[in-house]
Nucleic acid binder design. Structure first.
Lengths: 235, 235
DNA sequence: GTCTATAGAAGGATAGAC
DNA sequence: GTCTATCCTTCTATAGAC
């Protein structure tokens, strides 16, 4: 969940080189990383270009050499988030959990960790941007939607992998959307209340719902349908 | 859901007065209303004081006569939202629906209407501010949390009114939090995708969950407990 | 690719007359 | 309570040397 960009291959140009610094990422990467951090902590509008420059140790001219505008820098940040979803958010959880349902809740646990580590000050970086920026720039809105899509697809795959443990009539795509909904709504309230409770309660009820779905699927496959799982749901 | 401030009693100072205008609210009210609209559409940081002034037809000096700062104006906006929750959001729904569960979904339907009317550009005004402002000012964060609390309490009362239709073990407060979670998360995704679908899917699955809870309660009261509703949930 | 310097607009807030 | 004028800072972005 740290979302540190480990994929910066330019990060170690030292072997045999004349550069003495061992952790010097490229100028462009430092700009994107500084912007990512600041947009996460303060939001887009409240972050000044000067601040990004200072944090990255870069001069104005260089920023506008790589990026047309502050907004273009935000688009690069959104690309970074898409790229980091698997290595930073999913893979660690999936490596520790093989059960597809446990994986879903493992991902949610990761967000709980971020809330814990930041005293409920930081949640989902995409959620922040979604509400702040969706109406201000169509390319940005699309970048945000793509991030949501990537997250949702990963969860949806878990639900598909759960196979017959979930009722046939439950649309996996809709349930994945629902899980993202619960995550984002829970994070929002946790931040507003500066308390983990709303997030934890929300996840607990989500778990109860999914437990009930799985019970219904088990009952149905045992030939004793309860009548509760008839018909297509969430389509 | 229009959240127009009908409670401005100063709005009609015409009878026998010398003022020719019929819809002239007080200067302070016009400032709060203009700020409310602009913060909703553009967010707090992206809204300039000059813009608020122009929209309200007020001069800079007057704003700072009534409010210490832009942030103080935001606090007044948050107070307005608290005051408008009942007359603008709850009462119209509650007048049309007597069933407490139907009332809950009637409130959610109101948010769907707002998304529809704005082509998914506007959702919950408090949700926007929650993610943008929770870390920037403690008084603002508290004002946001109070707005969430008011909303949650109203929903919780509906759930309490539902009585034994919901299982005993389901904590009404947690379920109310969960409903707010689904509303906010659904609105967020609807705006990011500019599509009603994520909101509608989320509400549909919420309804399925509550249906299953009510079925479990009915089964339990019929003396044929399924084992699914044992124990305290959401505490 | 990086540097300094700065343009030009917009930001929030204040002073002081009326 | 309201007006105009304006202070000072910060903003994004550019110019042009190196």
């Amino acid at each position: 969940m740290m979302l540190v960009d480990r994929s910066s291959k330019e990060a170690f140009p030292t072997m045999g080189g004349s550069n003495e610094r061992t952790d010097q990422a490229s100028t462009r990467d430092r700009l994107v990383e500084a912007a990512r951090q600041l947009f996460l902590v303060k939001g887009y509008e409240a972050t000044g270009v000067a601040e990004i420059l200072r944090e990255a140790g870069v001069n104005s001219g260089s920023l506008y050499y790589f990026f047309r505008s502050k907004e273009a820098l935000l688009l690069a940040v959104l690309e970074t988030y898409k790229r980091l979803l698997a290595p930073e958010v999913l893979d660690p959880v999936f490596a520790a959990e093989r059960d597809p349902i446990a994986r879903v809740f493992g991902v949610l646990e990761g967000y709980r960790q971020m809330l814990t580590l930041t005293q409920c000050r930081m949640g989902c970086p995409i959620g922040n941007l979604a509400l702040e920026m969706s109406e201000k720039s169509e390319p940005v809105r699309v970048g945000i939607a793509e991030n949501f899509d990537g997250w949702k697809r990963a969860i949806e795959q878990c639900l598909i992998d759960a196979g017959s443990r979930l009722p046939q009539g439950v649309n996996r795509s809709s349930l994945a959307t629902f899980i993202l909904t619960v995550m984002e709504g829970g994070v929002m309230q946790a931040r507003a209340h500066r308390s983990l409770a709303p997030f934890e309660e929300s996840v607990r009820l989500l778990r109860d719902y999914i437990d009930r779905l799985m019970q219904a699927a088990a009952s149905a496959s045992a030939g004793e349908g309860t009548g509760a799982s008839k018909g297509e749901l969430g389509t």
